Simulated assay, not measured.
Amino acid sequence: MPLFGLNTDDLATALDAGHDLVAELSHVCLEFKHAYWAEKQRRHVLDFGDIEQAARTILDQADPDTGTTVGQIYRDAFDEVWWMSTRTPTPCRKPSSAACPPRHQATASWWGT
């Protein structure tokens, strides 16, 4: 069975035909992203996503001597550090410990209330 219901030649033709459209869409999206960021800077505003990205940048910075990231330092210093990362599939350092149960088992007593 051909991929996407097209034979190889038809698929290559379709991809070639869509190239200019996708390139223009990509260009427009990048222009919007830059203009939107410039407007936020002009107004001196940040949204949650900006703050989240800034925090992530800080947490991902590594010590040039040891290679240890700021995020790893905090994960090692505390029993409970929620860290959602594309590199680590678990939400915290000790996913199976009582201090850090799986997300679906989090209870009010776990949160300290």
Results as ranks from 00 to 15, higher is better:
K33C: 06
K33R: 14
A17T: 08
W37R: 08
I73L: 13
G67Q: 14
G18F: 02
D65E: 10
A14M: 11
S96Q: 13
T8D: 14
H104D: 05
T68R: 15
R43V: 08
L59K: 05
T66I: 12
M1E: 05
W110R: 00
W110G: 00
D76N: 13
A12V: 07
T68Y: 08
I51W: 01
A17S: 11
T66F: 15
E52F: 10
C100A: 05
T8V: 13
V70R: 03
P95M: 08
A12S: 11
T86S: 11
A14Y: 05
L11F: 13
D60V: 05
M1G: 15
A106G: 02
S97A: 15
R87D: 13
P102V: 06
Y36C: 04
T66W: 13
W37Q: 10
M1C: 10
G18R: 03
I73W: 11
G112W: 00
H27C: 04
G5R: 14
C29T: 07
R56S: 12
G18L: 06
E80M: 13
Q105T: 03
G67R: 10
G71F: 01
H34F: 03
T107M: 01
H27K: 12
P95A: 08
A106Y: 01
S97K: 09
S26Q: 08
L30V: 09
Q53F: 08
A77R: 12
H34A: 02
F48G: 04
P102Y: 05
T69L: 04
T113W: 01
P64W: 05
G112T: 02
V81L: 08
S109F: 00
V22Q: 05
R75H: 02
A54I: 11
K40Q: 11
A77I: 02
D65Y: 03
C100I: 06
K33N: 12
H27T: 09
T69F: 04
H44P: 00
E39F: 10
